[in-house]
Design a protein around this nucleic acid. Structure first.
Length: 569
DNA sequence: GCCGTTTTCGGCCCGACTGTTTTCAGTCG
């Protein structure tokens, strides 16, 4: 059992207890423990053997015992008990916008609804509006919310798909008869959310292989089974498609399954124009033996074009660019020299300054910026001017110890609802990196919100706007914004725009990041990490940048420190 | 349920917004 799955049990336990109206602090303790577990570098099982589980901050005797139970039996009796008492559908109801634990409880108790379908039915019959604490408007919002949930229900975050893909490919590799295995589809193209996971396996024999996969512990149910294909639904909420292909056709099958459909069809057209045929069996002249190829690069070069990286295969004129030799030299993870948006224990993060420095140096960075929250964000323990100056003095002192690494001073400053900034200019002036971002008043109208961010860009000390549209994938849409106007303003004021690498944000989107470059703005890829593990999410931001056709020159945190300082100045 | 260089008990991040139960409970970040 993976740590993340243990963490999920505690998250769900907390949700269930919340629905029962349990003590707030107990619930928070479970959530904290879940977060701590999810962020561990070492498997819990190993920690348990070494007797270290109780040493994890946030985990005491009671939760330690529960972790032991989970590792030994695969489940938690208290959790199972609550699941018998509260239908899992009620947890779904609690996820609706505007519905918290209390309203979900009322809906369950008063109307007897056990899930979204029954709730939708009740709302249509106008049985919700008459309940205490509800109204006609809320009834309408509930129906809206259910519609939204259904639309996204079958997609998961890219990071979930990639983690599952890694685990499954490791498992498949050691099965007898397997020559090669690779992830295809939108997961390979690093699309921000994934509908189903495609795995292509090269092997002569399929039956025993698919049997083994059908009984894998991640599999919840089998959706479809054919001779060479297996489609399953996993406990992670993601469907997986296993495809067994002859070793000689692996390359072509992987290429086709990677897609996108539009991109592949475009390639088939190009092939046809050249008298060739391209399909999952191979490529060659009609009626003749296929051309022998070993790599995807060779498929593209045989068609007389540059290699198109999976991230670009979206039928957005990449084929035309490749034919002309006009594709950009895409940015790579190794080009990144530092992370410019990191939180510490000074505000709401789990890592202290020393830990950040250690991990960033291990990652080979030559700089990092500490950008904690600003004073008005009380819930995140935002820094007032005094604490901010204290922190910056400490950073300056730390910097004396390094000759090959620079810790930059900075802040992630709130743009207040009226457009004012959270610190006066004289506080911002000496800082290395001033990030401005929105954390409150999300429901402003398009004109006000656009003007609000524009004003921040106009301040000469603001270097960067973080997670500009505010979206949380699968949970919250972007705020109302005139993105085009903002991209232009960013270019005009030389304000850098962040690509937030966190898999639940990826904000700017690929489309917006591409438009930002075209508008003449510079970008920066940051993790916005609040704990050590999430410093590793840079790879998602870089993939997003690649999907936006960005080169190292478009991204400021590829620069050497001296050049970077010039840009920030 | 966790935690302790004041405390082994009694604390445990705060404040804005919303709808309408016109005085606050519920939700959210």
């Amino acid at each position: 059992m993976q740590n993340i799955e243990v963490a999920w049990i505690f998250v769900e336990l907390a949700d269930l207890l919340e629905l029962k109206g349990e003590d707030f602090f107990k619930i928070r303790a479970y959530r904290r423990a879940a977060r701590a577990i999810a962020n561990l570098d070492t498997p819990l099982e190993e920690l348990k053997q070494r007797g270290l589980v109780g040493k994890i901050p946030g985990i005491g005797k009671a939760i330690e015992a529960k972790i032991k139970e989970i590792i030994e039996t695969g489940k938690l009796s208290k959790h199972q008990e609550l699941l018998r008492e509260i239908p899992p559908g009620v947890l779904e109801i609690k996820k609706l916008p505007g519905i918290g634990p209390n309203r979900a409880r009322i809906l369950h108790r008063e109307l007897g609804v056990t899930g979204l379908d029954e709730l939708a039915q009740a709302a249509k019959e106008r049985r919700v509006r008459v309940l205490k604490g509800f109204s006609a408007k809320m009834e309408w919002e509930i129906l809206n919310g259910i519609g939204m949930m259904r639309n996204r229900h079958d997609r998961v975050l890219l990071s979930v798909a990639r983690e599952l893909a890694e685990e499954l490919t490791e498992f498949i590799k050691i099965l007898p008869g397997v020559r090669q295995v690779a992830v295809a589809g939108s997961t390979r193209r690093w699309k921000e959310t994934v509908g189903d996971l495609d795995l292509v396996i090269a092997a002569e024999e399929a039956e025993a292989l698919l049997n083994a996969l059908a009984t894998h512990p991640r599999v919840k149910e089998i959706i479809d089974r054919q001779e060479k294909r297996l489609r399953v639904y996993t406990w992670w909420g993601l469907a997986v498609d296993f495809q067994v292909v002859p070793p000689g056709e692996f390359l072509y099958c992987l290429h086709r399954s990677t897609g996108s459909k539009g991109h592949y069809q475009r390639l088939q057209e190009i092939a046809e124009e050249q008298g060739l045929q391209l399909n999952h069996h191979g490529m060659g002249k009609q009626g003749e033996a296929p051309i022998l190829l070993n790599t995807e690069e060779e498929i593209y070069s045989s068609l007389g074009m540059n290699y198109v990286a999976p991230e670009l295969r979206e039928n957005q004129r990449e084929v035309e660019a490749a034919l002309k030799g006009d594709l950009p030299q895409l940015i790579q993870v190794g080009d990144i020299r530092g992370d410019l948006h990191i939180h510490t224990t000074w505000s709401d993060s789990a890592m202290d300054l020393q830990e950040v420095v250690k991990r960033c140096r291990e990652k080979g960075y030559s700089y990092a910026a500490i950008t904690d929250h600003s004073q008005s964000l009380k819930i995140a323990n935002g820094l007032d001017c005094h604490r901010l100056e204290q922190q910056h003095r400490m950073i300056e002192e730390m910097n004396r110890e390094f000759d090959d690494f620079t810790l930059l001073t900075g802040v992630e400053m709130d743009i207040l609802p009226n457009g004012d900034l959270d610190y006066p200019d004289e506080i911002l002036e000496p800082m290395d990196v001033v990030i401005a971002s929105v954390h409150t008043g999300f429901k402003q109208n398009r004109r006000d919100m656009t003007r609000r961010i524009c004003r921040a860009m106009e301040n000469e000390h603001v270097d960067m706007i973080a997670h500009m549209t505010g979206r949380l994938l699968g949970r919250r849409g972007p705020y109302e914004l005139d993105v085009e106007a903002l991209l232009e303003m960013a270019a005009k004021t030389a304000t850098v725009l962040e690509i937030n690498a966190s898999p639940d944000r990826l904000d700017l989107s690929d489309r917006h990041a591409k438009a930002a470059k075209e508008a003449g703005a510079k970008l920066c890829i940051n993790t916005d990490a609040h704990d050590l593990r999430r410093l590793d999410e840079m790879v998602y931001g870089v993939a997003q940048a690649r999907r936006a056709w960005l080169t190292p020159e478009d991204v400021i945190n590829t620069l050497e420190i001296e050049k970077l300082r010039e840009v920030l100045r």
